[in-house]
Amino acid sequence: MKKLIRFIFKILFWFVVSSFLVVLIYKYIPVYITPLMVIRSFENSEHNMPKAWEHDWASMDQISSSMQKAVICSEDQNFLKHNGVDFKAVEKAYTANQKGKRIRGGSTISQQTAKNVFLWPARSWLRKGLETYFTVIIELCWSKERILEVYLNSIEMGNGIYGCEAAAQFWFKKTAYKLTAYEAAAIAAILPNPRVYKASPASAYIQKRKVWIVKQMNYFGPLRFENNEK
């Protein structure tokens, strides 16, 4: 029994050490590949679809402020205020689901970043627990600006399209730096289901979402990051 406990302790110890190490490495270098990209590639292979994915890393100064604000206003308006988990959003989502309304998620941009970069997409209590664990680590080690930068470069923004640079090229034939407010909002609008929805041409639903996101962007005002030196 003592040997088993020691073995489990060693596994946990090295898991914590290695996870912190990877998070610290990704604080400084681009994230060119994620588990989701690999999983989607294998899924496409099973359905005789092309396995390749489109992904071009873009630093924050190469991404329009409109694109940055669009995802915040669409996905997580308290991103700059919370510490990784927005408990109010979780409570609202739970209440809505209990009332039988359309299911709403309470995941923050930090949580989505943790899931996309370090974990797999399938839902389970184990994955949710690890997602929370990695969310805490990136909130401790990265600035909000870095979290958003990695998010904007790793999120799925179309079928086989990852990151806002590839999305901008695919949907609007331009760089992420040149996206207008409405183009950025169109990309943000498809994030709930990017493999089904299209940013261009936009359906009536996406068009409605796009207009709402732009209004939220105007209310939000200038995007300012604080305490970036971590």
Rank of each mutant, 00 (worst) to 15 (best):
S66Y: 14
I161D: 02
E75C: 05
S65R: 12
R104G: 10
L152F: 05
M49D: 07
S154N: 10
P50C: 08
I5N: 05
T108V: 11
F13M: 13
F13Y: 14
V214Y: 03
N116E: 03
L80R: 02
F118A: 01
M60C: 10
E149S: 13
Q68L: 09
M37R: 07
K173W: 12
Y94V: 14
P50N: 09
S19F: 09
P121I: 08
L80K: 04
S110I: 01
F170A: 12
S107A: 10
K178Y: 14
K215F: 10
T34P: 03
N78I: 02
E91A: 09
V71E: 11
S19M: 07
R127W: 05
I190L: 05
K215A: 12
E229V: 14
Y151D: 00
S19I: 10
L140S: 06
E54M: 15
A114Q: 01
G163M: 02
I29Q: 04
W171N: 04
N159T: 11
H55K: 10
R195G: 09
S154T: 15
Y133F: 08
N159R: 13
D56Y: 13
W14V: 11
A184L: 03
I33C: 04
A167V: 05
L148Q: 01
N159H: 13
E139P: 00
F13Q: 13
F79S: 03
F118E: 00
S41W: 10
L130Q: 02
P35H: 03
L130V: 01
V17P: 05
F172C: 11
V90S: 01
F15G: 10
F220R: 03
Q169D: 13
Y94K: 08
F220G: 08
K128S: 07
A186C: 07
I190A: 03
T175P: 07
C164V: 15
G129P: 03
